[in-house]
């Protein structure tokens, strides 16, 4: 049976109410509402669960196993269902009879990543952050208590420096005595023309943005820094989408594109504080969209508080040090 709430607080006094505020503020809906109220940008949050379709028995088995593992790791907090074709089509009638089934999790959702980035930029500048675009950081040096960042002719000094430079994090972290192993993993994605409401919720293979376009993807290809699309992959993505939803066959492709994910060796984020240069931090992950509220919350608290955080410590890059294992 699915839960009614994530957390129940007993007691509505100062303590309970303060806790309720703090805990609720960490959720996606509150994060999204905050951005809308402060920047005027609606990032298109839909949090009504998500499906991952399985076309073959192998896919079904692998998915079931994966879901079981996640549930175990979260001590049962993660909820999911495995739906066969009949159950699935009872909920999404457009799905082809050819689809074996799907996993469903109510935790899944969707935001528009482009609008999220736009909103975050507006917010950070409204909060007084200075933004220096188009500057490649050439060097970072450290003396006790101060970092100097050389970028595009400027030399900027600060007591703390946070590296969130995507694939460039490895190079920059090295300058500050950190080992942050990241590698590119290409993903290709199809975007269709706008259609009237088609999908009620997100699926791993396909989602509909608020504007009406469908996003179909994504692929995982280890091809170095090559950001190009390939005929083979976009053909495969289209074929899979049409197998799941045959009525999409007449829909036009608007855009196919490829991008490089920032992958850590185990696929789990790196939140690392430098021991050699106190005040230097590295943040690397491939899921900047999903984790945005966490980054704006707990990770930011950890960095600005200079406090070791027991949970975040588990995400240190030290886990990749050979001497540690």
């Amino acid at each position: 049976m699915s839960n009614d709430f994530d957390t129940i607080i007993v007691g509505g006094g100062l303590v309970g109410a303060a806790l309720a505020c703090g805990i609720a503020a960490k959720s996606w809906p509150v994060f999204a509402r905050g951005l809308r109220e402060t920047t005027g940008i609606d990032i298109g949050l839909q949090q009504n669960g998500g499906y991952d379709f399985c076309l073959t028995a192998d896919e079904w088995d692998a998915r079931s196993e994966e879901m079981r593992l996640v549930r175990r790791h979260t001590r049962g907090e993660f909820e999911y269902e495995m739906l066969d074709n009949a159950d699935l089509r009872a909920r999404i009638p457009q799905v082809s009879p050819e689809v074996l089934g799907a996993s469903y999790s109510r935790h899944d959702g969707h935001v528009n990543p482009l609008l999220l980035l736009h909103a975050l930029h507006r917010r950070m500048q409204a909060l007084g952050c200075r933004y220096y675009p188009n500057r490649r950081v050439a060097a970072i040096s450290h003396e006790p208590g101060v970092f100097s960042v050389s970028a595009g002719g400027d030399r900027l000094r600060a007591a703390r420096v946070v590296l969130s430079a995507g694939l460039d994090n490895q190079r920059l972290a090295h300058e500050l005595g950190m080992h942050v192993p990241v590698a590119p993993l290409r993903g290709q994605l199809l975007i269709t023309e706008r259609v009237e409401n088609f999908l009620p919720c997100a699926t791993l293979q396909l989602r509909q943005t608020r504007e009406g376009s469908l996003q179909i993807g994504d692929s995982h290809e280890d091809v170095g820094l090559d950001e190009s699309t390939t005929l083979e992959v976009i053909t495969r993505l289209a074929a899979r989408a049409v197998r799941i939803f045959p009525q999409l066959s007449g829909l036009r492709l608007q855009r196919a594109w490829a991008a490089l994910r920032v992958m850590t060796p185990d696929g789990i984020p790196i939140y690392h504080a430098s021991e050699q240069c106190p005040g230097a931090f590295a943040v690397s992950c491939h899921s900047g969209v999903t984790l945005a509220p966490l980054h704006a919350g707990a990770v930011a608290d950890w960095i600005s508080g200079d406090q070791p955080h027991p949970l975040i410590a588990e995400f240190s890059a030290q886990r990749f040090d050979i001497s540690n294992t």
Binding site: E193, R194, V195, E196, F198, Q247, L248, G250, L251
Partner: peptide, 10 residues
């Protein structure tokens, strides 16, 4: 008028 229908097209 507006966006097309959901892919029922030929």
């Amino acid at each position: 008028l507006g966006a097309r229908d959901n892919g029922q097209a030929s």
